[in-house]
Amino acid sequence: MKPRSALPLFGTGLLLAGSPLLGASPASAAGGNYVALGDSYSSGEGTGDYIGSAGSCDRSNHAHPALWAAANAPSSFAFAACSGATTTDAINNQLSAVNGSTTLVSISVGGKDAGFAGALQTCVLNGTDACPTAVNNAKSFVTSQLPGLLDQVHRGIRNRAPSARVVVLGYPHLYKIGGSCAFGISDTSRSAINGAADTIDSVVADRA
């Protein structure tokens, strides 16, 4: 069973590692074998429309890996991403979808390990005073422990598919500073949460 979070992490944005996934042409995908790994921002949690056979992984045909596969028609598409996945989940439960014939891999992972969903929940429910501490605790994990965990995931992908293009994805800002949104949190909290996304993106980019 995967751990469930009360709130999703951050949205998904392409970060780096080889060529951008969404920029790959149909011709370059022809005959290729694509595997999508990762957490809720690869599985498509939040769309409200999920593939029944995916169970609690909340995979959606509206998620970016499924949309890309539909548009580019690779020879095969393995949708292994699962909502709430950690780096350990990716290694133990998803990497088996990757093999020597895999030509393209995408992955977003690391936010669940860091506990950013819990930090976000603290910011929303407990106010400005509690938010910076919760976010800083998560950022401390990201800078001290997440690099080694990401290395294990990336090494596992490379060992199983040494010739594949690997696209690593990051997490964008949730909030506009000075804007209005459903959760009425302060600009101080918004800045802290956006800064957390910057921190994890920097670490993910470095390890990629």
Score class of each variant (00 low, 15 high):
6 A>F: 12
12 T>Y: 03
16 L>T: 10
17 A>Q: 04
20 P>H: 04
23 G>E: 15
26 P>A: 12
26 P>F: 13
29 A>R: 07
30 A>E: 10
31 G>R: 00
32 G>T: 11
33 N>H: 10
37 L>E: 03
39 D>G: 11
41 Y>K: 13
42 S>T: 15
43 S>C: 09
48 G>H: 04
49 D>G: 14
49 D>I: 15
51 I>E: 13
51 I>D: 11
54 A>R: 11
58 D>I: 00
59 R>K: 08
59 R>P: 06
61 N>K: 14
62 H>N: 09
65 P>Y: 01
67 L>F: 03
68 W>R: 03
69 A>H: 08
70 A>I: 01
75 S>A: 15
76 S>C: 01
81 A>V: 01
83 S>W: 04
83 S>M: 06
84 G>A: 12
86 T>S: 15
90 A>P: 12
91 I>D: 09
94 Q>R: 09
96 S>Q: 10
97 A>H: 10
100 G>Y: 14
104 L>P: 03
104 L>Q: 06
105 V>R: 00
105 V>T: 02
106 S>C: 04
106 S>R: 04
107 I>T: 13
107 I>R: 13
108 S>M: 10
109 V>T: 13
115 G>S: 11
122 T>M: 00
123 C>M: 02
124 V>T: 12
127 G>F: 06
128 T>W: 06
128 T>N: 11
128 T>K: 11
129 D>N: 12
130 A>V: 03
130 A>M: 05
134 A>W: 09
135 V>I: 14
136 N>P: 04
137 N>V: 02
140 S>Y: 06
147 P>T: 00
149 L>H: 00
150 L>G: 12
151 D>F: 14
153 V>C: 11
154 H>F: 15
156 G>K: 08
156 G>S: 11
164 A>P: 06
165 R>P: 06
167 V>T: 09
168 V>R: 06
170 G>R: 02
170 G>P: 09
171 Y>T: 00
173 H>R: 14
177 I>G: 03
179 G>S: 06
180 S>K: 08
182 A>Q: 03
182 A>I: 03
183 F>I: 07
184 G>Q: 13
190 R>Y: 04
193 I>K: 07
195 G>R: 08
197 A>I: 02
197 A>S: 04
198 D>V: 03
201 D>V: 07
201 D>Y: 01
201 D>M: 05
206 D>Y: 04
207 R>A: 05
